[in-house]
Design a protein around this nucleic acid. Structure first.
Lengths: 221, 221
DNA sequence: TCTTCAATTACGGTTTCCCATAAAAAAAGT
DNA sequence: ACTTTTTTTATGGGAAACCGTAATTGAAGA
């Protein structure tokens, strides 16, 4: 059963509607934080006092502020929270729609649910909380579709490295030197060309600019 | 005095918090629409029945849906609304943070206020509504700062066209033909090279890939 | 160890892009 | 109408990218 919830969300308006949604679910023991660090403090204190939270509802992106924060965003908050309280349920509530980013929330950070800020988000938030209360994960169908549809091509670490370098303005012919300096295995210019061609071929592209745009949309770089 | 308000916002959660904010201002005569077309219908009907709205609070981006919409977003809604009811006050409530976009809301569409979905947005929403009720505009200081700070380089329509074409894989040498076919003014290859160089120079870039990545981050393409 | 096969790298020719300069066209000023 | 200035377009040489092929390396198996 979920009774004690922490909301980490810097947008006042979003925070308000999450609170209201929780009220409608008769969850009254809620706290809210507008900063990651603040959220983390609350979690730590709660654990130490033996009165820990059942659920953390957090956004991913927090706007930088005057006062410097240790934790820069939801991802770091999630990682830190799991450190001090492994059994904490985590529900991400964010406008994020890049499949790669959402995917790694499940695969790498093992979150319990994701609700995208979109048309029926308040309704989905309720569904998600109910599901999580039953110790099930909330993985909306349309998110899965989004991932499956757009994950047509899986980029390797090597691929991402190359495209990132290109997007940063490095000349193709200078990449071999960079790779050697960083002890990255295939470093020949031909190997780079080959990889780029394979990627472009698989995606039906002809130019590197398309790869950069595609990866940006995916959130891969 | 503002008594009758229409909220056009497709995100359920955002809609909820705007409603709540209006309640706190004792504005109870509110209607809400989750689609632009729906919002426009309500405005038109209200005008015809001689019971028009005092204020429209609208988002800018509405997600595409199954059923096709005539109006594709907040910008078009604003333009259409002004057609049928020129005295309607308009407050834009959006996550938009591209200075150029916010700027043109005031300069081109003559809106009465803009509140960015950010940390203190609920509070600002209240302030904005109060200001507009007194027939003043609401132009938060930090928005002005944002415009000044981030306006490092303003992309023109032409710029965006070129970069978009590149990101779609068109060869640079093929762009002149495309531009001529679309009756776009400077169409010489040299002009294109010149624009690209100016952009790269202004932003400290050396390669087109960087421009594509930058524009993707900005949401310009 | 030697052979086989795959992967990586090196090389040459072609295309595209880049850059500087010059010609042409358009706009502005007198 | 003519000059001046700006903008646009054209051109050519050189650098980078592209593409196919060949040489080299490296690992796996006999």
């Amino acid at each position: 059963m979920i009774t004690k919830v922490l909301i980490a969300e810097d947008h006042e308006s979003a925070n308000i509607s999450v609170q209201k949604t929780l009220e409608e679910l008769a969850i009254i023991n809620t706290e809210y934080a507008y900063y990651c660090d603040d959220a983390m403090n609350k979690i730590t204190k709660a654990v130490k006092s033996g009165n820990s939270f059942d659920l953390l509802i957090t956004d991913l992106y927090f706007e930088p502020d005057d006062c410097k924060q240790v934790l820069s965003g939801g991802i770091e908050l999630i990682a830190a929270a799991r450190e001090v309280q492994p059994d904490l349920k985590i529900l991400v509530f964010s406008a994020e729609n890049r499949p790669a980013a959402i995917d790694q929330l499940y695969s790498k950070f093992d979150i319990d649910g994701f609700v995208r800020k979109a048309r029926h988000d308040a309704r989905e938030l309720k569904e998600a909380i109910c599901e999580i209360a039953r110790h099930r994960r909330y993985f909306p169908r349309h998110i899965k579709q989004l991932i499956d549809k757009k994950n047509a091509y899986a980029f390797s670490e090597f691929d991402i490295t190359i495209i990132t370098l290109l997007a940063q303005g490095m000349l193709q012919k200078d990449i071999p030197a960079y790779l050697q300096h960083h002890r990255i295995k295939p470093s020949g210019l031909s190997s780079i060309e080959k990889r780029l061609n394979q990627m472009k071929d698989a995606l039906g592209f002809t130019k590197n600019e398309q790869l950069v745009a595609y990866c940006k949309d995916l959130g891969a770089i």
